[in-house]
Computed example of a mutant assay.
Amino acid sequence: MPTDPRMAAWRPFVETTARLQTLLDAELRAAVGMSMSDYNILLILHEASGNRLRMRDLADHMIFSTSRLSYQIDTMARKGWLCRERAPEDRRGNYAVLTDAGREAFAAAARIHADSVQRHFLDAISADDGKALRHIMIRLSEHLDA
């Protein structure tokens, strides 16, 4: 075991976050036929002004390549959860736009997801743990942005 407590935290961090993401994804897929990537895109569009966001901005939020996002958007559009619209201001860009069916799918998934997050994450940590973890994750995110 590493003597540096930061290194000792590394593997549990990687393994636990992967397990948690996999578990949340499996529960969403089983309940509503939606992946965590689908859910996160719907969440971002749900929170966006006018339920729309330029594709490049959505790719930045998702940390996806443009080709991966394009594939994901096409898959979700076939399900009727969103559509693409040309950006009238420059004709080169596109918007991803949440549809009524997407809002309904998101609402159903949000209930399932909230229950899963409660059982698998919130029930396992204290409020103080949450504050400390939030602080650490924000600091790590800022470090990665620098």
Rank of each mutant, 00 (worst) to 15 (best):
L24V: 07
D60R: 10
R56W: 06
L133H: 08
H61L: 00
L82K: 03
P88E: 14
T17C: 03
F121V: 14
D57F: 06
Q72H: 13
A105Q: 11
D129C: 11
Q21G: 09
M62F: 04
T17L: 11
P88I: 09
D115E: 14
A127S: 11
G130L: 09
M55W: 01
E47Y: 04
R19V: 09
G50L: 03
R54W: 01
L42H: 02
L24I: 07
R92T: 04
A109C: 07
L43I: 03
S49R: 12
S35G: 01
A18R: 15
H46V: 05
H113R: 09
R84Y: 04
R134Q: 12
A48G: 02
A87T: 09
R139E: 09
R78F: 05
M76A: 07
N94F: 13
A26M: 07
S67L: 01
I44F: 12
S65K: 04
R19A: 13
L98R: 05
P88Q: 13
A31K: 12
A124E: 14
M55L: 13
M55G: 07
L98I: 08
L28C: 11
I73Q: 02
T22K: 15
D90I: 01
Q21H: 08
T99M: 08
D145P: 03
T99E: 04
L82V: 00
R134E: 14
L43Q: 12
A108E: 10
Q72C: 10
L23Y: 08
E27D: 15
K131V: 15
A30D: 15
A101T: 10
I125N: 00
S116F: 08
L58C: 13
V117Q: 05
S67V: 09
L24F: 07
D145T: 03
A114Q: 07
V97P: 04
D128T: 10
L20F: 09
